[in-house]
Amino acid sequence: MIFARHKTRSRMAYKPAGASPVQRASMRYSLRRWSVEHARFLEKIYTLFADMLLALHWLWSLIGYRRIERPMLFLERNIKGLMFDCRMCGQCILSQTGMSCPMNCPKALRNGPCGGVRAGGNCEIETDMPCVWTEAWRGAQQMQGGDSILAVQKPVDQSLKNTSAWLRATAQRAAQNAVKAGIKA
């Protein structure tokens, strides 16, 4: 909490293309913000989509989850990349974070906003970017399962980075259903 800042901080003369804060803002944040704005709608779509993937579990098993991983990964990366600026952590919690991807937080916070959120609700580090957690809070207000934002999230399993969260969730749900069916029978 000490606020020492050194005036002697070196500044690079050359800035790579696309590294200007204004440019980044116009390029990327617009769709991400739309997704938060429509969190309720996306929540419904997502639930339907997850059920569809689960219904096709027989197909994935037939082809083999291993074989389907790469095409699915391609789809997931591009769709979620476009909609949420997804970082492919491989353990998606969008439904619990108001459809705002927490991995876009420069501190990778998965459990709520840090203390540095600026008065206008922007990030302390990426000053032109709205804090992903003020956005998450906004999105969660609209969602039916919005309260799940209060759940304490476990640390990210870094070994799952760049794997399909969709397939993993589907396989896990299928396994859970199998166990449940086993208990009933």
């Binding site: 800042r5 050194h6 002697t8 901080r9 420069p106 501190k107 990778a108 916070l109 998965r110 459990n111 709520g112 840090c114 540095g116 302390e124 580090i125 304490v152 999230q153 476990k154 640390p155 990210v156 870094q158």
Partner: peptide, 23 residues
């Protein structure tokens, strides 16, 4: 959680953030 590396005197450092304050 800690401040971002960008705030300090060595902004080129690798930010780890493997855990967050909650975890």
């Amino acid at each position: 959680t800690g401040d971002g590396v960008q705030a300090g005197d060595q902004p080129g450092a690798k930010p780890v953030f493997d855990l967050d304050c909650m975890s």
